[in-house]
Amino acid sequence: MISETNREIESPANAKRFGGDIFYVLESEIQIGDVDAYGYVLFNKKREGLETNSFYNRSIDIECAIDGKEFRNPVDQFKRTAGNFERYFEYTLEGKTIHLSLYRERDEVEKKFDDLKNELEVMPLRVQKVETLQGLLFIFFISLILRAILLRRAREAKLLDKSSIEEILMELSKLRAVKVGGKWRLTEVSKKTEDDSGEDGN
C-alpha cells in the first residue's frame, strides 16, 4: 500500500490536521487472505524530517569515529561502532586502517533508481514484448552502475566541490572518439572537459 500511494499521498487533497500537525492520509482497499478490508496510509513530513536528521547525525558520528583511522582489529571495531547501522555502510581495509564508503553515495543511486521506477510506470504501455521491457530494465541497471562508479571517482578527485554530477556528465557527453589507424582516439577536448575528467586525463 505504501508503494502504491507513495507518489500521490502528498496531494493537498489528502492533508488532514491532527493535534496541530499536518498528516497526509490515503484510504485504500486491501485484501488480507480472503477478507476485503480498508487500509490507511499516513505520512507526516515533520516526523520524516526529524527521523532523517537523526539518521544522518548517527551515520556522520560513525564516519567521524572510524573512517581513515587505524585499529588493532578494524572489522570488529567497525561492527561495534556501527551497530545496527552496519548495513548502511561499505568499507575497505588498507592494512589496519578502515575506509568507509559513504551511505550518501548509495542514497544518491537509490534516489535515481526511484526516478527510473517512476518513469517505468508507463513503460508497459509503450512496449509490445516482455523481452523489450527486460532489455530496458537491464540498460537502466547498467547505467546506474556506471553512474555509481563515476560518482565515486568524481568524489575521490574532489570534482564535486566545483561541479555537480549532472554538470560533469554534460561535459563528458561532448567527448567524441574516432578510429584512426586501427586505434580509437578522442577528438579535441575542451579545457573544462579536461578539468572535469581529472588532471591525469583519466
Rank of each mutant, 00 (worst) to 15 (best):
E167P: 01
Q128T: 13
Y91P: 13
E86A: 10
Q128H: 09
N118A: 04
K96E: 14
L100V: 04
V127C: 13
I165N: 09
M170L: 08
Q77V: 06
E166Y: 07
Q77D: 15
E131W: 04
V75S: 11
H99L: 05
R87W: 00
L133K: 13
K96C: 09
F85E: 14
L172W: 10
L125I: 01
R80Y: 12
F138H: 15
Q134D: 15
K117W: 01
F78W: 06
K158G: 08
K79D: 12
R104G: 07
A157L: 12
L137E: 15
S164Q: 06
E167N: 09
S101V: 05
I139M: 12
G83C: 04
V75F: 10
E108G: 00
V109D: 04
E131D: 15
K111Q: 08
N118V: 01
F140P: 00
Y88I: 00
D107S: 04
L150D: 14
Q128F: 03
K112G: 00
K96A: 04
D76E: 15
G95Y: 13
E119M: 05
L116G: 03
T132F: 06
D76R: 13
L175A: 09
A157C: 09
K111H: 08
T92E: 15
R87F: 00
L100S: 12
Q128I: 05
R152G: 03
Q128D: 14
S164C: 03
L160Y: 07
L133E: 15
L175C: 08
F140W: 03
L102Q: 13
I165T: 06
L151H: 10
R147E: 06
A154F: 05
A148V: 00
L133H: 08
I139K: 14
Q134H: 13
I142K: 12
D114A: 05
V122N: 09
R80V: 07
L172Y: 07
M170Q: 12
S101Y: 03
L125M: 08
K162A: 03
L125G: 04
S173G: 02
D107W: 02
K112C: 02
P124T: 04
G95R: 13
D76S: 09
K162V: 01
L160R: 08
S173C: 02
L169Y: 05
F138V: 08
S143M: 06
K129L: 07
A82W: 01
L169P: 00
Y91G: 14
E94T: 14
Q77S: 14
S101M: 04
E86I: 03
K111C: 03
E119Q: 08
S164N: 04
V127N: 12
N84T: 04
K112H: 07
L144R: 01
D76A: 06
F85Q: 05
H99F: 08
E108T: 08
E156L: 14
E166R: 11
F141G: 09
E86Q: 10
M123K: 02
L102Y: 11
E105Q: 12
R153G: 01
E166P: 03
V127M: 06
L136G: 05
G135I: 00
E90D: 14
L175N: 10
P124Y: 02
K117R: 09
R87P: 00
T132S: 14
Q77W: 12
V75M: 11
M170S: 10
E110W: 02
K158V: 03
K129N: 15
N84S: 07
L151C: 01
D161I: 00
A82G: 07
R87T: 04
Y88L: 01
F89P: 13
L175R: 12
L133D: 11
I98R: 06
F141E: 14
K158L: 07
F141I: 01
F78G: 08
I168M: 06
